[in-house]
Structure formats: structure tokens, C-alpha cells
Nucleic acid binder design. Structure first.
Lengths: 113, 113
DNA sequence: ACCAACGGTAAGAATATATTACCGGCGGTA
DNA sequence: TACCGCCGGTAATATATTCTTACCGTTGGT
């Protein structure tokens, strides 16, 4: 199903990025047959591979997985937060705080290419 | 690494969606231990699972994988409330906003189990 | 006490992946 | 022609992961 579509879009993205399977594999520390099998739809893509592939190919993950492009950047974010906060339920705030802790805990991570 | 972050966000998303591991597993035709192991960061998430999970939980894939959401706008009413939380850094605030949006989205979803 | 649901995890079977190697095709070039 | 280097596909098998069932302790309700 969407596995094949993902495979196809991964191949398209790689080609649009002007990379061979070998080049992509080398850059990501993967083996070339892995790329080949993935693009053939015979091999699953792990979520962290998906991240690295999308990043290397310069596309958004949602384009790989769903074929959709996400638009804008977060700008007026803080304003947004304020309003949303006011209508949140207590349990949601609790979950939110847990998430904040999580964010804090994983703060020193790298995500860029 | 990001595998653990993904695991944490998957758990957060599930909880915010108000689903137990068993409910989520049943809905997606997965086994409960699979969800458990994924959320513990011991099991890889396949790309199609990622798709289904994000969909079920009512969050965007990019939030799961990268902790980011590209989305719209809101107002400025309760700015003060947000500022209270704003001993955080900008990047954390950004993540916070994304989380809030996610929570709101899940509220209107199929909250019930 | 019971019961039901939750989430964690152990263990062996089943499946998937990693890694190496080999294949044929294709452009260039001598 | 032959040779070369790079490309992408794939076979083989040792290794790793996942599936599946089952059991555990905890919690909340009756």
C-alpha cells in the first residue's frame, strides 16, 4: 500500500537530489542494497532512517509519507500558545508539563544535517 | 538518540489521544507488546506504522519524528499565561506550542475509546 | 475478596535485515 | 573490439529483529 508509495517517493526524492544509491548510502552510513531494497518496496523503512533520508534529500517527511507538503514556518508561535493554554483542561496541562520535561531532557540533541 | 524521542512522543500522543496501548493496538491491528516496546524505545517504528499511529493519535508525523508542527495562527489574548511558562528558551517555547496544538487537536478527535 | 484493564516483559518461533558478493547495463575511451 | 568505472538489482546466509503467547504486578471498581 503506502509502503510502495513511500518507496517510490523516496526514490524520486533521491533522484531529485541528484544522488545515486551508493552516494546516499555512504552519506547516511547505510549499505547500498538497503537503499535498493527500500526503494523497491521490499524493505521497511525505520522511522529514524526516514528522518535521515528526508533530510539528506531535502524534502519534508510528510512528503515522503503522505505526498503532501507542509507550508509555513512557526512564527507567531508564542501568541498561539497563550490562547491555547487558556482553554486547556487540567489533565491536558498535566500531559503538557510532562512533555515539557521531556523536551527539556532531550534538549542537547542535534537534528540538523 | 531520536529513536527515544520518537518513542516518548508516541507515548505522549497516545496518552493525549486518550487511548490505552491495548486500544491503540487493536485499532491498528497491532499487538499490544509492540506498542509497549515501541514506546519504550526498544523497537523500531516502521514508516507505515508511523503513518498509522500519527493518524490514530491525531498528530502530524513531523511532530512525532521531529517535535515540530507546521500550522496556523491564533490570537494574543492570554499572552500572559504563556509568559509565565517562558522561563524556557525559544526553541522550547516552539515545542510547547506544537504540543499545545497537538493536544487541542486530539481533544476534538475521537476522544472516546 | 474478586474482577477487569492497564502496562511491562520473558521466551521461542517466525520473519526481516545486514553484509558480502556477483550480475548485467551503460557511457566513455583507447 | 576490449576495457574501465559507476550504476542499480539481487542471491546467500549469518545475524538481528520482530511476532506471538503468556505471565507478572499494579490499580481501580464492585
Amino acid at each position: 500500500m503506502s509502503k510502495l508509495e513511500i518507496a517510490n517517493r523516496l526514490r524520486s526524492a533521491r533522484e531529485m537530489a541528484g544522488l545515486s544509491q551508493g552516494q546516499a548510502a555512504k552519506r547516511l552510513g547505510m549499505h547500498r542494497p538497503t537503499i535498493s531494497e527500500i526503494e523497491a518496496g521490499r524493505r521497511n523503512v525505520k522511522s529514524d532512517e526516514l528522518l535521515k533520508l528526508a533530510n539528506l534529500y531535502g524534502v519534508e517527511i510528510t512528503w515522503i509519507t503522505e505526498g503532501k507538503v507542509n507550508e509555513d514556518k512557526i512564527d507567531q508561535s508564542i501568541l498561539a500558545a497563550a490562547r491555547e493554554l487558556s482553554s486547556m483542561k487540567d489533565e491536558d496541562i498535566e500531559a503538557l508539563i510532562n512533555t515539557i520535561k521531556m523536551i527539556k531532557a532531550s534538549e542537547n540533541k542535534d537534528g540538523k544535517n
